[in-house]
């Protein structure tokens, strides 16, 4: 199987949210009760029942508000934090690059929810497990495009072999740069390369994307080093106070 990727060209996104609806449809996900919170963006975050949504990022620039639309979902990272922390091996990478949660293996510990740098893995009360975008593994296997890509009218969403998507992104970046606009590619190198690649028209932070994301397990070796050093100190100094008892003699 080829290595796939989705290419999201945010410069073309109109914020129509057809992708968001298509995802719900294909995956049979229930609607959410939402509030109006000053924007048409809803729900507030991805959830166990909303695997993709369009973020309406606002940025104030020279007194003007710039709207930066971006569809968000699981990034299908090569260095996938969820997969690294999962104790049950419920999370695996498929040959196409998709990161998929085996709902029968998962125990619902939610470590993956806390581990994802993108907030893309979320717990579903109904299933007792986290659920998220699978890059429509089933559709792709049948030769179709992911449901969201299929629904996109503006050309913002593209799907295909990762190398082709990257080439497309670079081509578009050149065009935008030539027109004097900002154009940043996100996902080429981040987290070992992701299977969702963005072309952003502003800094990643303006889209709520972490600038230099790190795999969740990156502090584990240094964490153990400090902790074991501390425990060594504790065993060698504070607790050695009990040797004082010997000097005083007693009933041993």
């Amino acid at each position: 199987m080829a290595e796939y990727a989705m290419f999201i060209d945010t410069s073309k996104c109109t914020g129509c949210r057809a992708c968001q609806v298509a995802c719900k449809n294909w995956n049979g996900l229930p609607a959410e009760e939402t509030d109006f919170w000053g924007t048409y963006e809803n729900p507030k975050t991805l959830t166990g029942n909303t695997w993709t949504k369009v973020k309406f990022n606002e940025k104030v620039e020279n007194g003007n508000i710039k709207l930066l639309f971006a569809k968000i979902q699981c990034m299908h990272c090569n260095d996938a934090s969820c997969m690294a922390v999962c104790a049950t091996k419920a999370i695996s990478r498929r040959p196409g690059g998709m990161i998929v949660i085996d709902q029968n293996r998962c125990v619902g510990c939610r470590n993956c929810v806390t581990a994802c740098p993108f907030g893309a893995v979320n717990f579903s009360e109904e299933t007792g497990t986290p659920r998220k975008c699978r890059l429509c593994e089933d559709r792709v296997a049948a030769g179709l495009q992911p449901a969201c890509v299929n629904a996109c009218l503006s050309g913002a969403l593209n799907f295909g072999e990762r190398s082709e998507m990257l080439a497309l992104a670079k081509k578009r970046q050149k065009e935008l740069l030539a027109a004097g606009e900002k154009a940043i590619i996100y996902g080429e190198k981040e987290l070992g390369g992701t299977h969702v690649i963005y072309l952003l028209t502003d800094e990643p932070e303006a889209y709520g994307l972490p600038k230099d994301p790190e795999i969740a397990t990156s502090v584990v070796p240094s964490g153990w080093t400090w902790a074991l050093a501390g425990l060594g100190l504790i065993a060698l100094f504070p607790l050695r106070r009990f040797t004082e008892a010997r000097k005083k003699g007693g009933e041993a």
């Binding site: 690294a84 806390t114 740098p117 790190e214 969740a216 397990t217 502090v219 584990v220 964490g223 902790a227």
Partner: peptide, 28 residues
């Protein structure tokens, strides 16, 4: 004792992940 802190550190929660000291703190 140490793993309880490191468990929290191996996430993306900034307060837990940003430093390598949570395991040390929890061990103490």
């Amino acid at each position: 004792a140490a793993y309880t802190g490191i468990l929290l550190a191996s996430t993306s929660v900034p307060m837990w992940h940003a430093t390598p000291f949570l395991g040390l703190l929890f061990a103490c």
